[in-house]
Each structure stands twice: as structure tokens, then as C-alpha cells.
């Protein structure tokens, strides 16, 4: 009886490790392909049958991309758009999340459901409406327009996550601070924000990644090649006949690096942060 239990345990472990190893290999496969292909020359990419590892490692691909397209400009644009929209989004979502977590007011349910409804509209569904609005406001073809849009479309998520975080912090702390003469604003900044730091970091990382990876709005709204972000700019390597895959992948991997810097934070925060956000319903 006992022996079968143990055997079952080992069998379960074998399946578990098999599942994990296969899953990890599957996830890493496209990154492996991007890496080895980014180091092949043109003749090797278009050779039949293809190779797996490069026969000649063409590291100069990583230098050429900076000359072939204005990659540095794309990096700068992506950074401006991502940092700007994240800052704006969080700056608006903190007071909103705080009010939703702490205050009772007429129309609260309506406002909460209105914010949830915005989750249903992706920017893509509203593409023509957005395009028209941006033309009206003279914000098409500007980074400012993208910053405002990305901040707005991430409001629901950020406010919801932050209100969940604020709700877990004891009210008594800020009430004590307010009795001591702090205004509500001061109490929020001095007492609540430091305690809510993990939730805020999670929100910042999420919004930043969404903004960094934004594609459709930039594709539609930005015509000026000097204002393009990385995602849209890299697309320039997709030719009509042949795609310069080695350059696409070298630039793509470089464009992914800034996101990898967040992984340490993400790994720590993602699970805990999501629970605090109240996924439970």
C-alpha cells in the first residue's frame, strides 16, 4: 500500500518535470530562433535546406542595424512614450484608486462600472473613432497623443489594481495621521503610498510593458518616420519581396532587453500583486 503511494509520487514527479521541461523549451524556442537567426548572413538565411546554428557568426548584424534604420531614434521614441504614459497613467490612477477604496459618494457604483466597461474597449476596436478624435485635436502624428491614449486605456487596470492595494491598508493609520493634523493628501503621501509601494510598483511595471509593446495605435497614428516607436520601426525590415530576418531579429532582441530588466521585480510582485488587486472577484 505504502509502496504504491511512493511509486505514484515518483510517477507524478516525472510527469511534472517532463511538463515543465517541455513547456520551458517550447517558450524559449522562438527566442532561440531569433538569436541564432540574428547572427546569420543573408545567404545563410535564404539557403535551402536551412541551418540551425549559424555557420558563420555575423556579429556585425548588431552594428549594421543602427546604420540601416534610425534605431537610436526609435529607442528614444519608445522610451519617451512608455515613460510618459506610465507616469501620467499612475499619477491619475493613484488618487482615483484611493477614492474608490476609501470614500463613499453618490454615483460610486456607476463610476466603478464605467471604469470596468473601458476594459471592454481595446484601442483597436475604436481605431476609427480614435483616429478622428486625434485629427480633431491635432494630436495625430505626435508622441503626446500616444501618451494620452495609452495612459487612458490603462486607467481601468491601474485604478482597479491600486484601489485593491489601498483597500488592504488599515484605515486607522491615515486617520491617526489626520488627527495629528495632516491633510488627507499629506496622509496619503506620507503614510499610505510607502505602504502601497509593492502594488504601485506592480502597476508601474504593467503599464510600462503595455506602453513599450504598444503597436496598433502607433501604426495608425504615426506617419513621421522620426516619431516611430521600436515596434513600428522594426517593421521597416519587412520588405515586399524578402524580409531581412537577420536584422528584424537583431533589432527585436535589442528592443526586448529593457523589458527583461523588469523581470526580477515582476517575478516577485506578479503573484502577490495580483492577489492584492482582488482577482478573487
Amino acid at each position: 500500500m505504502r509502496k504504491t503511494g511512493k511509486q505514484k509520487f515518483y510517477l507524478g514527479r516525472i510527469f511534472l518535470y517532463l511538463f515543465v521541461v517541455l513547456g520551458v523549451l517550447y517558450i524559449l524556442y522562438p527566442y532561440f530562433v531569433m538569436f541564432v537567426s540574428s547572427l546569420k548572413g543573408m545567404d545563410e538565411i535564404f539557403r535551402i535546406p536551412g541551418t540551425i546554428f549559424p555557420e558563420k557568426w555575423v556579429w556585425t548584424n548588431y552594428i549594421d542595424i543602427w546604420r540601416d534604420i534610425p534605431l537610436a531614434v526609435y529607442f528614444k521614441n519608445s522610451a519617451i512614450i512608455a515613460v510618459g504614459s506610465t507616469a501620467l497613467c499612475i499619477a491619475c490612477a493613484i488618487p482615483a484608486g484611493y477614492a474608490l477604496a476609501r470614500m463613499q459618494f453618490p454615483g460610486k457604483r456607476f463610476i466603478m462600472s464605467a471604469i470596468v466597461v473601458t476594459q471592454m474597449f481595446s484601442a483597436v476596436v475604436l481605431l476609427v473613432g480614435i483616429y478622428k478624435l486625434m485629427v480633431t485635436l491635432h494630436l495625430q502624428n505626435t508622441r503626446t497623443g500616444l501618451i494620452l491614449l495609452i495612459a487612458a486605456f490603462n486607467q481601468a487596470f491601474a485604478a482597479w489594481l491600486l484601489s485593491g492595494t489601498f483597500a488592504t491598508i488599515s484605515k486607522e493609520l491615515e486617520e491617526a495621521a489626520m488627527i495629528d493634523g495632516c491633510s488627507r493628501m499629506k496622509a496619503l503621501i506620507r503614510v499610505i503610498l510607502p505602504l502601497a509601494a509593492p502594488g504601485i510598483v506592480t502597476a508601474v511595471v504593467f503599464v510600462f510593458i503595455h506602453a513599450w509593446n504598444e503597436y496598433t495605435l502607433t501604426l495608425v497614428l504615426i506617419g513621421d518616420p522620426m516619431l516611430k516607436s521600436l515596434n513600428v520601426g522594426i517593421h521597416a525590415f519587412f520588405g515586399y519581396t524578402n524580409t531581412e530576418w537577420w536584422y528584424v531579429f537583431a533589432a527585436s532582441l535589442l528592443a526586448t532587453l529593457p523589458i527583461l530588466c523588469f523581470f526580477q521585480i515582476l517575478e516577485k510582485q506578479l503573484v502577490g500583486g495580483l492577489t492584492a488587486g482582488g482577482v478573487k472577484g
Binding site: 501620467l88 499619477a91 491619475c92 490612477a93 488618487p95 482615483a96 484611493y98 477614492a99 474608490l100 470614500m103 463613499q104 459618494f105 460610486k108 463610476i111 464605467a114 471604469i115 473601458t118 474597449f121 475604436l126 476609427v128 473613432g129 480614435i130 478622428k132 478624435l133 494620452l148 491614449l149 495612459a151 487612458a152 486605456f153 486607467q155 481601468a156 485604478a159
Partner: peptide, 22 residues
């Protein structure tokens, strides 16, 4: 509470709900 919510609501109204109506 509306003061606290104002930045969020303004942003969402102009850049999400106006495109919906448009």
C-alpha cells in the same frame, strides 16, 4: 471624492468614451 477621481475621469472620458461615441 470627485476631486480625487477627476484626473482619471477626464482622461478616460476624452480618450476612451469620446472615441466610443465617435
Amino acid at each position: 471624492a470627485y476631486l480625487w477621481l477627476a484626473p482619471c475621469l477626464v482622461l478616460v472620458t476624452i480618450f476612451v468614451f469620446v472615441p466610443v461615441i465617435e
